[in-house]
Design a protein around this nucleic acid. Structure first.
Length: 389
DNA sequence: TCTGGGGTCCTAGGACCC
DNA sequence: TCTGGGGTCCTAGGACCC
C-alpha cells in the first residue's frame, strides 16, 4: 500500500472569526465569544485577544481585567452551522473523502487530488486561499501520511499555517512535545502519566508497557503507535450521529416539580425537533441531572422499539427522573436520545418482518396496521407496562 | 475552579444465551 | 450442580474533545 496524503484542516478561532465576517469592524480587534452575563466563561477568543493572555474557558470578568477595550459577542449557533456547512462543501470540491471531525475541522484524504498539483504544498495553499476568499475564514492545514500526524501538524502553526509532518520527522518534531498536547490525553491522564515519568510524547517509548496500561487501558498500544507516527485509522465519510442530546444549566437551582417538568419539556422538544429533522429515531432515552449538593447521576432505559416524538421521550424521561424526585434543587438537566437509526431503515425492517402480511410501505408509515402502530406509536406509559410484564 | 453545551468512546458489572 | 468459555446487550460513570 502506497503512502496516503491526509490533510487535517481546522478553522482558526472559528466562533470569533465567524462574527468578524458578520461585523467586519471586529477585524483585528480583541474579541471574545460568550454570553455577556456575570459568571460566564469564554468560548472562543480572537487572536488579538489572545495577545492579552485571554483564552477559552477563562472567566469573562478576568478577561475584562486583562483588556479594557475587549469586544464581547453573543454565541450564534445558526451562523456557525451555516459557515461550517459551506466550509465542508468547499473541501468536498477537492476530494470526496472528507470526514467532518467537529464543527470547525475536517480530515480529507488528498492522495489522489495531490497528483494534479506540481507540489503537494500548492494544494494546501490553494485551499487556504479559497476558504479565505470565499468565506473570509482563516484555516490551518496539517499534511501527513495519517490522521493523527495531520491533526498534530495542523496544531503546530496557527493561524493560517501550513505544516507538513513526515513520518521520519516524528522523533524531531513530535517526541519533544509535552504529553498533554497529544490528542486523546487529557488532564486526568497527564497527571497519572507524569507519575510514571512520562512528560513528553517521546517518553511513551521509555516506560514499560504494563505501567502505561494502568493509565491508558486497552488503548495503550494505540497511543504508543501514534507516538511513533503510526495510525491506520480510516477517513470515515459516512458517519451519522450516534446520539442527539440537549442539556441546560440553571443559575438558580429548581425545587418546584412543575417548573422542572416544564424545563425538561423544553429540552425534550429540542431533541424531538432535531431527531425528526435528521430523520432519526432512537431506542434509548437518557436523563442526567446535577443537584445543588453537587451530586450528579444519569439514568437511561432502552425500549424494544424506536421513538422520536415528544410524548414518548418525555414520559420516559420523567420516569427516569422519578428516582431523584425531592432529593434537592436541580442545577443541570440533560436529555439524550441514542441507539439511533435512520427512520427509513426502521420502516424497511418492519416491512421485512411483515412480508407475509402483504403490508405496503404506506400502511406502515401511516400506521394503519394496528400491530405496528402499537409498537411504533404507543404512548410511553403503555410501553412501560408492556415491558414490565 | 467546575463555567457551558454539543458530542464520542471506554470500562466494568450484570443479565442472558449458546 | 458445578466447571468453563464466548458473545451480546444494557446500564452507570468517567475521560476526553471542540
Amino acid at each position: 500500500m502506497s503512502a496516503r496524503v491526509i490533510f487535517h484542516i481546522d478553522i482558526n478561532a472559528f466562533f470569533a472569526s465567524a462574527h468578524t465576517i458578520v461585523d467586519p469592524t471586529l477585524k483585528n480587534k480583541p474579541v471574545v465569544v460568550c454570553r455577556d452575563v456575570s459568571g460566564s466563561v469564554i468560548t472562543t477568543a480572537s487572536y488579538p485577544a489572545r495577545e492579552f493572555g485571554i483564552h477559552s474557558a477563562m472567566p469573562l470578568s478576568q478577561a475584562k481585567k486583562l483588556c479594557d477595550h475587549l469586544e464581547v459577542v453573543e454565541l450564534d449557533f445558526d451562523l456557525y452551522q451555516e459557515l461550517s456547512e459551506r466550509f465542508v462543501e468547499i473541501i468536498k470540491g477537492y476530494t470526496p473523502h472528507v470526514q467532518q471531525a467537529s464543527i470547525d475541522e475536517v480530515y480529507a484524504d488528498m492522495t489522489e487530488t495531490i497528483k494534479m498539483y506540481k507540489k503537494p504544498l500548492d494544494l494546501a495553499v490553494n485551499i487556504q486561499r479559497r476558504v479565505l476568499e470565499t468565506l473570509k475564514l482563516p484555516i490551518s492545514i496539517g499534511v501527513a501520511p495519517n490522521k493523527f500526524l495531520a491533526k498534530m501538524a495542523s496544531d503546530m502553526k496557527k493561524p493560517m499555517g501550513i505544516t507538513v509532518l513526515r513520518k521520519k520527522e516524528v522523533a524531531d518534531k513530535l517526541w519533544p512535545l509535552p504529553i498533554h498536547e497529544m490528542h486523546g490525553i487529557g488532564k486526568k491522564s497527564v497527571s497519572r502519566l507524569n507519575n510514571l515519568g512520562v512528560y513528553k510524547i517521546g517518553d511513551l517509548n521509555q516506560v514499560p508497557f504494563d505501567s502505561l496500561k494502568t493509565v491508558l487501558g486497552n488503548r495503550t498500544q494505540n497511543f504508543i503507535d501514534k507516538a511513533n507516527g503510526i495510525d491506520l485509522s480510516e477517513i470515515e465519510v459516512y458517519s451519522q450521529a450516534k446520539s442527539i442530546g440537549q442539556s441546560k444549566t440553571f443559575v438558580n437551582p429548581i425545587y418546584d416539580l412543575d417548573e422542572l417538568s416544564e424545563r425538561i419539556m423544553v429540552e425534550v422538544l429540542e431533541v424531538e425537533r432535531r431527531s425528526q429533522s435528521q430523520n432519526m429515531m432512537g431506542k434509548t432515552v437518557s436523563f442526567s441531572l446535577r443537584l445543588d449538593s453537587g451530586f450528579t447521576a444519569s439514568r437511561s432505559s432502552s425500549l424494544n422499539t424506536y421513538i422520536n416524538d415528544k410524548n414518548n421521550i418525555y414520559e420516559r424521561v420523567m420516569s427516569l427522573y422519578g428516582e431523584f424526585e425531592g432529593e434537592g434543587g436541580v442545577n443541570f438537566i440533560s436529555v439524550t436520545l441514542s441507539n439511533l437509526k435512520p427512520k427509513d431503515e426502521i420502516i424497511e425492517q418492519l416491512n421485512l418482518f411483515n412480508l407475509d402480511k402483504t403490508l405496503s410501505t404506506q400502511d406502515v408509515i401511516s400506521g394503519l396496521n394496528k400491530e405496528i402502530q402499537s409498537d411504533l406509536f404507543m404512548p410511553a406509559s403503555a410501553l412501560l407496562s408492556k415491558e414490565s410484564k
